[in-house]
């Protein structure tokens, strides 16, 4: 089974059951149930979706933007727009994948708008903003999955990890990474490709388990 078909199932919420009880939401509601409620304009469903995914959205925004206030604003914007009528379609992947993809895409937009607009527009680079957040096996808890990914990343060399992270979190092309690190382009390409192959090998077993 492909990771792209593995939905991000949410963990049973453990942190705020009292709030859910007050808000009349069943703690065992699936994301699909919540989205159905959201379609009726019920803000309580938004609250529950926020509780499930705000850590992911905020952490990713903070990593990419490097500024807590901006990350807060972006997280607010993403959840509010989602409530007001996002274009999420369950057939395309899990809600977590969608929110992470939107967060990354919006963060890259913000990063780009910080620098000279036209300099950026004159640049042709592969936009990885649509790279899906395809998560490992859905029978594992989110924390377990996070541990596996961290373990997999720790197996990479420092340079391999650095190049992949610059590409993913800062949206840099490999030419730009080469300049940033002052290393030859061929070396950077090799680090990125070998690093990605190794990461794929590390995470492959999980996908095969599904």
């Amino acid at each position: 089974m492909l990771w792209a078909q593995s939905p991000l199932q949410t963990e049973p919420p453990s942190h705020d059951c009292s709030r859910q009880m007050q808000e009349g939401l069943n703690i065992n509601m699936t994301d699909a149930d919540l989205i159905e409620k959201l379609e009726t304009g019920d803000p309580k469903a938004l609250g529950e979706i926020y509780d499930r995914y705000s850590n992911l959205v905020f952490s990713l925004a903070l990593r990419m933007l490097g500024n807590r206030q901006e990350a807060e604003d972006l997280a607010h914007e993403i959840f509010l727009k989602f409530y007001q009528g996002g274009n999420y379609n369950q057939k395309r992947g899990s809600l977590g994948s969608y929110l992470a993809t939107v967060t990354r895409s919006r963060s890259i937009d913000r990063l780009r708008s910080r620098t000279n607009r036209r300099q950026i527009l004159n640049r042709w680079q592969q936009d990885l903003s649509k790279a899906p957040l395809n998560l490992p096996a859905d029978h594992a808890s989110l924390k377990e999955r996070q541990k596996r990914v961290r373990d997999a990343l720790s197996q990479l060399s420092e340079t391999q990890r650095q190049v992949l992270e610059l590409s993913y979190y800062e949206g840099l092309s490999q030419s730009e990474i080469s300049k940033r690190l002052q290393r030859p382009l061929g070396t950077v390409k090799s680090w990125a490709r070998k690093g990605l192959l190794q990461l794929r090998d590390q995470l492959k077993d999980e996908s095969d388990d599904v």
Partner: peptide, 18 residues
């Protein structure tokens, strides 16, 4: 699969609570 591995990077982040 390769794009999936790349897309899993956010799971390696230290979780920051808003």
């Amino acid at each position: 699969h390769l794009q999936g591995a790349l897309g899993a990077l956010p799971l390696g982040l230290e979780i920051e609570e808003p």
